[in-house]
């Protein structure tokens, strides 16, 4: 199950979706909004996506998890728009009969999402803002 949402994510509901009697392990990763980067206070974040490419790439990541670890029960959700500190931006829930596959598949998914899914994050500070991954910072004073 793949979801890109402008509203708050529900990690417990997503975790419940992957649970099944045949599974002995459930791993749920939450990406949350951190209050500082490189010692600077972050006020809030904004996420932007290229849709529907982002939806398709998330589905491809779930397919790769299925092929490599045989995990059938996967839920991935990403939030867009403005997020406050401690809000959940990403949920990856994986269930499998044994824990090793669920742990490995979940870690792979989070790393892979950052490589191939066209979703970008902008951090807002007191004195400026920056697209994470971009080499240039845009200071409020200079723009």
């Amino acid at each position: 199950m793949i979801e890109i949402s402008d509203g708050p994510l529900d990690p417990e509901a997503l975790t419940a979706r992957v649970r099944r009697n045949s599974n002995g392990a459930v791993v749920t990763f939450l990406g949350t909004t951190r209050d500082s980067t490189d010692g600077r206070s972050v006020l809030h974040l904004e996420y932007e996506a290229y849709r529907p490419m982002a939806d398709r790439k998330l589905a491809e990541v779930a397919d790769e998890m299925r092929k490599r670890w045989g995990v059938e029960d996967v839920a991935i959700a990403h939030r867009l728009g403005r997020l406050e500190i401690a809000d959940v931006s990403l949920v990856v829930a994986v269930a499998s009969p044994h824990r090793a596959d669920a742990f490995a598949a979940c870690q792979y998914a989070v790393d892979r999402i950052k490589q191939v899914v066209p979703i970008w994050k902008k951090e807002f500070f007191q004195d400026g803002e920056i697209w994470v991954g971009s080499e240039r910072e845009h200071h409020l004073a200079g723009s």
Binding site: G31, S89, L90, I113, K114, V116, W120, G133
Partner: peptide, 10 residues
């Protein structure tokens, strides 16, 4: 589409 570096999240 020009895709800027994707490195969001944690």
């Amino acid at each position: 589409a020009l895709i800027p570096p994707v490195s969001g999240g944690s």
